[in-house]
Design a protein around this nucleic acid. Structure first.
Lengths: 246, 246
DNA sequence: CATTGTGAAGCGTTTCACAGCC
DNA sequence: GGCTGTGAAACGCTTCACAATG
């Protein structure tokens, strides 16, 4: 069904990485995914009034290994001092700059159900630079209610909200069956970044970034590893006929 | 600070993949992460009463390429028919079996705030085989309230709940500062799989699987790519010396 | 003859190991 | 001496391309 669109998930567009071709220094996708973790950790280090940090210590706190930390940070530039480590405040600044966190990015939430409301009420967004400036729903009975200090408006108004409030990011918190329509509306409104909580693969045009958070999938993945812990070494007949040679 | 524990995230324990050493057929982590997506898609195919599906069609619907689908499915066994495709119901069964979804996995939620309540109210968990059998909070004023049909109990009772209701998976929906304590309590209660919504790197003993869902990180990653779209081609001196040849 | 299953090539990520530098 | 920055090796995942086959 998708037609000159591309299904995508986890930050890639049908195979092709989603970052536009040839911009500045290239930071690998895997590294981009870890920079937010370093930021979190460094915030606490700043709070502890520690001014320098080694790759070893940062690695420990972030739950990765030190070589990875150094490689990751080296993509941003040479911001460390040999024999000393990294100046924490400076490093925070550089990571934030790289991630584009020098200014706020306004967010609109589609879907004022349980999840949408929880997200809107979650102060963590706004004070991390992602103010929720709009919430929309298709259900007239939800419109006009106040959620997290923002009045819910009808989804038909999403285009106007995006324009007038300069929204950059859309969050889809609708049921699965409504998610594609929500995405279409967001895209039509000019949104080019979507965070999708609905368990659906969205079809969006090239140039629109989609990241997916699928709670049930996460549980199912945990289930896989949990099962393995419980049933070690069950050699089924299928296994016997197909020794794990490959 | 962690002491004979290992910080981890995204399903691995400090570098080492978390699945116990040498069990059955090995399914790559990347594949495990996609099986839930195939399941979702196949559910709809079943609903459409289509009995067979080719790797091409499944790939299209799942937003990946066909070779990947075939490789992924080949790890589970040879369940397709050349020239025909895969029998949908049988494939669903095999994927569910591989993921350990033949039976329910009970879930306990720690934290009855906005997010915890939204998760508990989200029917999608229970009817996908992850019944929420307990919700706990540290705040006495939240205890005894009813959330999603489950009465909130005090966090001190989490061990008893896990034992009596045979809980396998813990979901942490607390503020960041309380997340490590929540994890410690869950681990002490015998939980070996944790889904963490708090923006913290958890330290847990080996053998405990942790998956993290960090909403702000997701937004920050979108911010990175959004920024790139907005500021195309700021050729710094570094770029000139490093044409994107790789 | 359409479509799977899979070796092999290609590619991105992680880790190693050490030269370079403060 | 201690720690960064980075080539190079190792590893895992993706994609190609085609032989195998119902």
């Amino acid at each position: 069904m998708p037609d000159q669109r591309n299904a995508n998930s986890r930050g890639e567009t049908a195979g092709r990485p989603l970052h536009s071709t040839l911009t500045r220094r290239r930071v690998p996708e895997a590294t981009v995914g870890r920079l937010p973790i370093y930021l979190r950790v460094l915030d606490e280090v700043v709070a502890d009034e520690q001014s320098n940090i080694s790759s070893d210590q940062l690695a420990e706190l972030a739950g990765v290994n030190a070589a990875k930390v150094r490689k990751d940070l080296s993509y941003l530039g040479s911001y460390g001092t040999r024999g000393v480590g990294y100046e924490v405040e400076f490093l925070v600044y550089q990571i934030r700059r790289e991630l584009g966190l020098n200014h706020d990015w306004s967010v609109v939430i589609v879907g004022a159900g349980n999840l949408g409301q929880a997200l809107a009420n979650n102060g963590g967004f706004a004070n991390r630079g992602f103010p929720v400036v709009g919430i929309v729903d298709i259900d007239p009975s939800k419109v006009s209610t106040l959620v997290g200090g923002v009045r819910v408006r009808h989804i038909d108004e999403v285009g106007q909200i995006v324009q007038s409030k300069n929204v950059n990011i859309g969050v889809i918190a609708t049921p699965a069956h409504a998610a594609q329509d929500a995405a279409d509306r967001l895209v039509r409104a000019g949104i080019t970044s979507i965070l999708n909580f609905a368990p659906t693969v969205l079809a969006v045009p090239r140039g629109v970034s989609v990241r997916k958070v699928d709670l049930v999938s996460e549980l199912q993945i945990l289930s896989y590893y949990e099962q393995r812990k419980r049933v070690p070494h069950v050699a089924t007949s299928a296994d016997v006929s197909r020794p794990a040679s490959a």
